[in-house]
Design a protein around this nucleic acid. Structure first.
Lengths: 211, 211
DNA sequence: ATACTTACCGACCGTTCGGTCAGTTCACAA
DNA sequence: TTGTGAACTGACCGAACGGTCGGTAAGTAT
């Protein structure tokens, strides 16, 4: 038992396999619906070996969440300081976030699932952390756009940011269901969707009399 | 054993208590995290009595979902054929839906939870049903607004409808987390939120040169 | 009174759960 | 070669799970 209580820095091969298997299963079915035996089976190891690396089921879950968060917030920095108008930068940020979400479906599902369970104090804190990060950057960007007289002054920047995030998150969440609703073709093309959403949103935020 | 397999028409007092307890717990923790004993305890009855009314745990869950859906779609008809511009009607519809969501948090949480679990074929069908209902009406309303030359022609009505729903759903879902983010004051006032969202959205959809 | 049905319950069953224990394998340092 | 700690495992534990059994209490129709 080397590094426990989710203070990971270096993982062995076996530990990595356990984390991956756990992430897959936890994202698919949720905490309680996944047994340690199932994780062990998918990771091609034994149940006691999991307890050799993690002190209990909850500790394993937290470790999975932490790696998910780390991965999610890593890809965020790239799109931040692009050039162009705030409309363009905002659109870039939004499409980037959606691409990020769809590129890490398991992590997203994991985090999104936490928003629906009242208990698990720790899980909600983690969620708040990763959500708050994206949120703050978006709010700041919108606010700068207002100071630059590009966006209307009478809209709440936090609300605008929230709308962008909600459009992306709900797109991900509702995809499997919307797939079966024939009218919604946009669900199959994330970039078209992102484009359309930001078109309406930006158009609604722009000052009148600008380009 | 009288009426089983979720083909309910009339419920006795005891059965109603079981359904209510089950709805509360299922919404709070999810299917697998709730034990039949816990439901029996909350309903002030015994576990075997639950099996007298429902043939198994899954049947009970489906029964709970059905009553939730019935309640959700009932409150929908009121706001449909209001007078006014399409902008006003759309705003009314949206605020009505959000009020409906917040007035039936347990049902909403139950349905929202189904969107995150891949299995449970039946549950997803139910979700698709109740979501599709709202969705269709919204799409039709936006489309009419376009034919009336009130809204831009170059936006996808299904996408606009989706954005409205996503704003409402994600508001509900993210509330407990946004509560702890100080910048987001709008989270405490649903009607202000709804107003702000629809302001941006409608503004983004309006034809230029109209009032 | 009798017979039948419905609502309900204590006790119990087989199974699976999270978690433990004693012990093995193996790499590597002394 | 021996020692040591980390990686790993089969067998097992008490507890809790979903579900069943036999039976009771109460209403109701005959």
């Amino acid at each position: 038992m080397q590094n426990q209580s989710a203070n990971k820095t270096i993982q062995s091969d076996g530990e990595q396999a356990i984390l991956e298997a756990a992430e897959i299963l936890f994202a698919q079915k949720g905490f309680d619906s996944v047994s340690m035996s199932a994780i062990a089976g998918l990771a091609n190891t034994s149940k006691p070996n999991i307890y050799h690396h993690f002190k209990n089921k909850n500790d394993l879950y937290l470790a999975v969440m932490k790696t998910a968060v780390r991965r999610s917030s890593a890809l965020l920095d790239a799109v931040e300081d692009a050039p162009g108008t705030f409309s363009q930068r905002l659109t870039g940020f939004s499409t980037g976030q959606l691409k990020n979400i769809l590129g890490h479906k398991r992590s997203t599902q994991l985090i999104l699932r936490e928003t629906l369970t009242e208990d698990s104090q720790q899980g909600q804190e983690i969620t708040r952390l990763v959500m708050g990060e994206v949120f703050s950057r978006l709010v700041e960007m919108v606010h700068q756009g207002q100071l630059d007289k590009e966006f209307r002054d009478d809209i709440d920047p936090t609300l605008a940011a929230f709308m962008i995030i909600s459009a992306n998150m709900f797109f991900f969440q509702a995809s499997p269901i919307m797939q079966h609703i024939p009218e919604a073709e946009f669900i199959d093309d994330a970039s078209t969707y992102s484009q359309g959403v930001m078109d309406v949103l930006i158009n609604g935020m722009l000052r009148r009399g600008d380009s």
